[in-house]
Design a binder for these strands. Structure first.
Lengths: 224, 224
DNA sequence: CGCCAAATCACCCGAACGGGCGATTACGCT
DNA sequence: AGCGTAATCGCCCGTTCGGGTGATTTGGCG
């Protein structure tokens, strides 16, 4: 496993950054810097030529930014993983980079050890994010998870059940059958629901329910 | 920095797993396993007592699952980071764990090196995910970024306009007024729409429209 | 032990909906 | 010139909705 070194391409518009990163990585005998580029465009070009295991990518660059360069590299050379090495602690930069296909996000204050660890882990396809940005990134998940279970609807448990059925397109009678109550009761519930949600009809109630995540994934919106 | 070893608590219902993990971690001189637990409940308890730097957590456990245990530990002892070590390659497990506050997600086929790297990185608050699960996780981001454009509805332009109005809760008459056509025409369009979408009523059509992104953000699902 | 919210059911009535059927105009493609 | 599709409108009819009003039961809460 140590016959083949991990090949790395450095992309950064500051020569001295490339120099210090190259030096830091050279300390390890399992990594080899096979190329360097001074901007995104050049980085994409060299990545296509060299097909390195890992590209260490800066974000703020002239000609072609790191995010777009990452996207192009990931598309053209899927086997190449991208590790973003930047000074930006911006949430949007982090998200944009990850969405573009970057597997790692390290801040430039990281030590040589961190850098080495990151390159090794990223080369295997793993995901690695700097401590400072970690919480930011995980917020994404907590939000996604939170944004489905319980959104305070102000509705009672029973009302939510009714709304759920309604949102699936059931008529009052069908809802009643499903919940073992009379159509009359369903109507009463629905009237209360509509009042509480300030909507005028079952379509708006349905729209609300879907948006609130009160669905059960009946069928994917993939029109036939 | 090497006077103080990284303290680790192992939580796994299989004793031999704890044993092998403990052995693997002991190879490093910068990590010390300070405790073990056989289930989530016990894990939470010991985490509160020991306040370890890192908890290596299994997911599938009796009494109290790893996800819930993670949530409780993260809440009770914020300084303690959680690294999930599991056999599950399930997307939902990954998401649930990360949402619960786990900072790392490693598969049990990881090597001793990987484990050591992970513990060290997680101890500093970083995020680290196994190669196999990396793509899965990043899908979250690409989806969030991609999710919006045009979903092929199969409907004509006019039909989409009608559906859009309907999804906002308009009656046939109101839709007609909005689009300068008769209620009869609206009904015809809507009948065609329902047939094309294979739905039975306007509520299902509405649900479809909302899911397909054919909305105009009327009001946030934040019940008053 | 009263009070209230939640859940249950009932009746009535006008308006809206869903479906079946038919029809005209306009535009593009062959 | 002929054909298909989209868009437009009409009528009829049975079902469903939405709203108004009233009533009973159950479970908590003070």
């Amino acid at each position: 496993m140590d016959v083949e070194k991990i090949t790395v391409l450095l992309v950064d518009d500051h020569a001295w950054v490339r120099g210090s990163v190259a030096q830091a990585l050279s300390l390890a005998d399992d990594i080899e810097v096979v190329g360097q580029a001074a901007n995104g465009e050049e980085g994409v070009k060299k990545a296509k030529e060299l097909s390195p295991d890992v590209v260490v990518m800066d974000l703020d660059m002239p000609v072609l930014g790191g995010v777009e360069a990452t996207r192009q590299i990931r598309e053209a050379v899927p086997s190449t993983q991208v590790l973003v090495l930047t000074v930006s602690e911006s949430e949007s930069d982090l998200f944009a980079a990850m969405a573009a296909g970057a597997k790692g996000y390290l801040l430039k204050n990281a030590g040589a050890d961190d850098l080495h660890t990151a390159v090794m882990h990223i080369s295997q396809g793993g995901v690695l994010v700097s401590p400072i940005m970690a919480t930011t990134m995980l917020t994404q998940f907590t939000e996604v998870e939170t944004k489905a279970p319980k959104i305070e609807t102000g509705l009672s448990a029973r009302e939510e059940e009714v709304l759920q059925s309604v949102a699936q397109g059931a008529s009052n009678k069908e809802v009643g059958a499903e919940l073992f109550i009379t159509e009359n009761t369903v109507k009463t519930h629905l009237r209360n629901i509509m009042e509480k949600l300030h909507v005028a009809n079952r379509s708006q109630a349905t729209a609300y329910a879907v948006r609130a995540g009160l669905y059960r994934e009946p069928d994917r919106p993939t029109a036939s």
